[in-house]
């Protein structure tokens, strides 16, 4: 096993009295897509900025691509590509010029890159000026520049914000191609389903510290489903059924979250009671945090 491409231990970053990162750990192994999850303001972008050497850490260990991001930023950046969450472009430069500029600044040659192909796939008009692009198109400019070369590491900060579903698919394909040739991806997001599709492992943070980290399949409660059913018959009592949580009954409507093991029993009971409407959704990140928070408060008592 090679050394992890990103190793963060006990990272602390404060802005005045505000503690943005509070002992954060993050390990990204070579060749994996690592989901970096957290609600807005959790410290995802701050962590990424420390990883890029833009912010100075206050405490902790940070290594990226085997180097110190603060000291060796420029050298390390030859081997990585970064797409910020909110891309801001030079108003007077065309999209094509900006793509080429970013590729050249990473020390690569645009003529020998996949820029043309990617511009086509993302249906980007490269002759428009920076100021004329919509949010989604600005995002595409940064994505084309990032995917056009073969970096060892891609750092993507909420890269699909502003992209339509069609373009999200193109984005997913591009990530898959990059990992197929051995690239490592750090993908930050506040949408669980997006990370679910792409990531091998996830780190979930909240208020600057890690809540959970591991393989998605190992995080048991992440695979819980939220069930909402409207019933025509008598509402069954599921309180005792194994694997059922957060049970609530409102008239003829029943809602709960269910572990995969408990699903057959719940569905059987619901069918018996006469289901007229049924929705099943993966839990949202917010619900997970509420859970984690509730657990911590509960434990403290």
């Amino acid at each position: 096993m090679t050394r992890p491409l990103i190793e963060v231990r006990g990272l602390v970053k404060t802005f005045g009295a505000f503690r943005a990162l509070d002992g954060l750990d993050l390990v990204v192994e070579a060749g994996e897509v690592h989901g970096f999850l957290g609600p807005n303001g959790a410290g995802k972008s701050t962590t990424i900025r420390v990883l890029l050497g833009l912010l100075r850490k206050d405490a902790g260990e940070v290594r990226i691509l085997g180097g110190d991001p603060w000291r060796d930023a420029a050298t390390l950046h030859r081997r990585l590509a970064y797409v910020p969450g909110d891309v801001s472009l030079w108003p007077n430069l065309s999209g094509g010029e900006i793509v080429d500029l970013l590729i050249r600044m990473r020390g690569a040659d645009p003529a020998r890159s996949r820029r043309e192909e990617l511009i086509e796939r993302f249906s980007l008009d490269p002759t428009k000026r920076g100021r004329a692009y919509s949010k989604g198109n600005r995002q595409k400019v940064a994505l084309v520049a990032a995917f056009a070369t073969d970096p060892d590491l891609l750092i993507l900060d909420e890269p699909t914000s502003g992209l339509d579903p069609l373009m999200e698919q193109v984005f997913n394909d591009c990530v898959a191609e990059q990992t197929a040739r051995g690239a490592t991806v750090l993908l930050s997001s506040h949408i669980l389903s997006e990370v679910d599709r792409l990531a091998d492992r996830v780190t979930i943070i909240r208020e600057g510290a890690v809540v959970e980290s591991g393989r998605l399949s190992d995080l048991r409660h992440l695979s819980r489903s939220r069930i909402v059913a409207t019933l025509s018959g008598a509402v069954p009592d599921l309180a005792g059924t194994p694997g059922v949580h957060d049970l609530g009954v409102d008239g003829a409507q029943l809602s709960c979250t269910v572990d995969p093991d408990g699903l057959p029993a719940v569905l059987t009971a619901l069918t018996a009671a006469g289901v007229t409407a049924l929705t099943s959704t993966p839990p949202s990140l917010e619900e997970l945090f509420l859970d984690a928070y509730r657990d911590r408060v509960g434990a403290a008592r």
Binding site: L93, E97, D100, M105
Partner: peptide, 23 residues
């Protein structure tokens, strides 16, 4: 009206100083 820009960047537009001069 804003004229459309070039499809590709000039090879000279490759570092921070060239960018500042361009801007």
């Amino acid at each position: 009206p804003t004229r459309p820009g070039p499809r590709t960047g000039s090879p000279r537009l490759a570092d921070a100083f060239a960018l500042a001069v361009k801007v």
